[in-house]
């Protein structure tokens, strides 16, 4: 790991000011993705701004039909929250599939979204549930947030403060994990929202994406059978030693069916 200047932010304002004062800073949340990236020397920030002391960015609450999860809330807390389990059980389930228990004790929702790894789990829930991402300066709709591989709509120095997840009528998540890293090779989140069915796929492509043909079928019939015959294209899907593009395309249908049956 290349060395860097380390700063601990005392508040969100302090974090932004320290970020602005540095050459090429990154925010550090749980570090479960950022630190491995730095160890591999895939990134070389001049400064890290640690958000670990920002306790007002932790917590889960309900606000007019939304479950609001603050950015620094760790996966374990989402997984075990009675509120999330009762209102959006699929979201609690998803949080419990990320990494392993020790990763879930440290990794955060905000960190996962800001990084937007192609195989991160949370982006599928945010996109399928039509969630709103709150930052220090605006609110971004899920459909506008995820722009591409490791790329989001966040501006330089913009800080995610929390996410509002509208409570769906029904939802499910299923993933096929890589046996070593536990990242989804393919993960599918399905949700029956007030705007209709939404299906979001992670792990298969460069960035989380929706599957309109599945959503149309589910608007007519919310059941595993409705998607069972839908084959998605393998064009542009990820291909690596773990799975071919064709295999990933096949898994999208299988995981969608299982998510609906869950």
């Amino acid at each position: 790991m290349y060395d860097f200047e380390y700063h601990r932010a005392a508040s969100a304002d302090d974090a932004k000011s320290k970020f602005g004062g540095a050459d090429d800073a990154r925010y550090l949340a749980g570090g479960m993705t950022l630190l491995p990236v730095l160890k591999q020397r895939l990134d070389q920030p001049s400064d890290l701004i640690d958000l670990g002391d920002l306790d007002d960015l932790r917590g889960i609450s309900e606000d007019s039909g939304n479950i609001v999860v603050k950015a620094m809330t760790v996966h374990h807390d989402v997984n075990t929250s009675d509120l999330v389990k009762s209102r959006i059980p699929a979201l609690a389930h998803l949080a419990g599939t990320i990494g392993d228990p020790m990763v879930r004790n440290r990794g955060t929702l905000g960190g996962s979204l800001a990084n937007n790894d192609p195989a991160a789990s949370y982006p599928s829930a945010v996109l399928a549930l039509n969630a709103a991402i709150h930052t220090d300066r605006r609110t971004i709709a899920a459909d506008d947030f995820f722009e591409g591989m490791f790329t989001t709509a966040l501006d330089e120095g913009e800080l995610i403060t929390g996410v509002s997840f509208p409570v769906p009528e029904a939802a499910g998540y299923m993933h096929f994990p890589n046996p070593a890293s536990r990242y989804p090779i393919v993960g599918v989140f399905v949700a029956k929202t007030s705007d209709g069915a939404r299906v979001a796929v992670t792990g298969a492509g460069a960035c989380v994406y929706r599957v309109p043909e599945m959503e149309e079928a589910l608007n007519a019939d919310w059941s595993p059978d409705a998607v069972a015959g839908i084959k998605v294209s393998a064009d542009g899907l990820n291909e690596d030693i773990h799975a071919s593009a064709e295999y990933r395309a096949h898994l999208v249908t299988v995981m969608a069916k299982r998510a609906l049956a869950a």
């Binding site: 630190l35 491995p36 890290l48 640690d50 228990p101 020790m102 440290r106």
Partner: peptide, 8 residues
């Protein structure tokens, strides 16, 4: 419990 190889 946490992984001390991935904490500063």
């Amino acid at each position: 419990a946490m992984k001390s190889c991935t904490l500063l």
